[in-house]
Design a protein around this nucleic acid. Structure first.
Lengths: 83, 83
DNA sequence: TATTAAATGATCATATATGATAACCAGATA
DNA sequence: TATCTGGTTATCATATATGATCATTTAATA
């Protein structure tokens, strides 16, 4: 079993940062050199992205990777769902 | 082509934090609920870990995920190697 | 010497991330 | 109506992360 909510929280973080910059999924995907469908999957939390994918997004958003993953994870959200 | 050095930098970060805590690869792997061989691969930078894997390690090391990925990435190290 | 622990590496199977393509939906606008 | 943009989902192929097991190496120690 995978942690659906962790991916979802991460996806929400990407979406928030992307919308703040007023760019489309498609634009962000292009900046990252991957498919817009992949970006949709990531934002929807339907995939468990790799370090490289996260790093590409941080470059596109012009923030450090540490900021990209700087979000709160509540116990109820996630802990018990780890495989 | 994958970013070998990004994974290696991440692996070095894990190793540094693990050794500071004076725990073995095996111990850390057990705390993360995965195989010690997987931990060896991660520390050696021979794999491109997923968000969930990184999150499990951050829980085991008792630090936020954002701290786990708080390392410097130099241009020469990595940028031009992105696929 | 033997023995133990820690780290590493090889290999195979399985699960899944991503690439790639296609289709669809909603909203805006001509 | 048609057309465009942005977002979403489905599907398939390929690459690879991880699980699992086994073996090897190195260092420490008896």
């Amino acid at each position: 079993m995978i942690s659906v909510n962790l991916s979802r929280i991460f996806g929400n973080q990407i979406r928030k940062l992307r919308e703040e910059r007023k760019i489309s999924q498609q634009n962000l995907a292009e900046m990252c050199n991957f498919e817009k469908t992949n970006m949709a999957r990531i934002e929807a939390g339907r995939t468990n992205p790799t370090l490289l994918t996260m790093y590409k997004i941080s470059l596109a958003l012009k923030i450090p990777l540490s900021e990209l993953v700087d979000f709160e994870i509540k116990i109820d959200d996630d802990i018990e769902r780890l495989s």
